[in-house]
Amino acid sequence: MALRHALAFDPIAVDDPRSDLAGTMRSFDPRSPIVQIGDLSAQRGDGVFESLGMVGRHAQEVSAHLARLAHSAALCDLPEPNLAQWREAISRVVVHAPETGESVLKLILSRGVDGAGAPTAWVTLADAPDSTAAREHGIRVVTLDRGYTADVPERAPWLLLGAKTLSYAVNMAAIREARRRGADDAVFLSSDGYVLEAPTASVILRRDGRYLTPEPAAGILHGTTQRSIFSYLGSLGVDTAYARITRDELRSADAAWVVSSIRLAAPIVQIDGEETARDAAMTASLNRYLLSPRD
Rank of each mutant, 00 (worst) to 15 (best):
I139M: 10
I139Y: 05
I139P: 07
R140N: 09
V141P: 08
V142P: 11
V142N: 02
T143D: 00
L144E: 01
D145A: 03
D145K: 01
D145R: 01
R146M: 09
G147F: 04
Y148V: 04
Y148N: 08
Y148R: 04
T149F: 08
T149A: 04
A150M: 02
D151V: 07
D151C: 11
E154R: 14
R155K: 15
R155S: 14
A156R: 13
A156V: 12
A156T: 01
W158C: 14
W158S: 14
W158Y: 12
W158T: 10
L159T: 02
L159C: 05
L159E: 00
L160T: 06
L160F: 07
G162V: 02
A163H: 07
A163S: 01
K164V: 06
K164Q: 10
T165L: 05
T165V: 01
L166M: 07
L166F: 12
L166C: 12
S167F: 12
Y168N: 14
Y168L: 11
A169K: 09
A169F: 14
A169D: 14
A169N: 05
A169T: 10
M172H: 14
A173Q: 02
A174L: 08
I175M: 10
I175P: 00
I175F: 04
R176F: 15
R176W: 10
R176T: 13
R176P: 12
E177R: 10
E177C: 09
E177L: 15
E177K: 06
A178S: 08
R179M: 05
R180E: 15
R180V: 14
R181V: 02
R181K: 12
D184M: 00
F188N: 06
L189N: 01
L189I: 03
S190N: 11
S191Q: 01
S191P: 03
S191W: 03
S191T: 04
D192F: 01
D192P: 00
D192I: 00
D192T: 02
G193T: 08
G193K: 09
G193S: 08
Y194R: 06
Y194H: 11
Y194G: 06
V195R: 04
L196Y: 08
E197G: 02
P199S: 01
A201T: 10
S202N: 13
S202I: 13
R206Q: 15
R206I: 15
R207V: 11
R207S: 10
R207N: 08
D208P: 13
G209I: 06
G209N: 10
R210A: 11
R210F: 14
Y211W: 15
L212V: 05
T213E: 03
T213P: 00
P214S: 03
E215M: 13
E215N: 11
P216D: 10
A217I: 15
A217T: 13
G219Q: 02
G219K: 02
G219S: 08
I220P: 00
I220A: 02
L221G: 09
H222D: 15
H222Y: 14
H222M: 08
H222N: 09
H222F: 13
G223D: 02
G223C: 05
G223T: 04
T224K: 01
Q226D: 06
Q226F: 13
R227A: 15
S228M: 14
S228T: 11
F230G: 09
S231Q: 11
L233P: 00
L233A: 04
G234A: 07
G234M: 07
L236T: 05
L236W: 05
V238T: 13
D239I: 14
D239T: 15
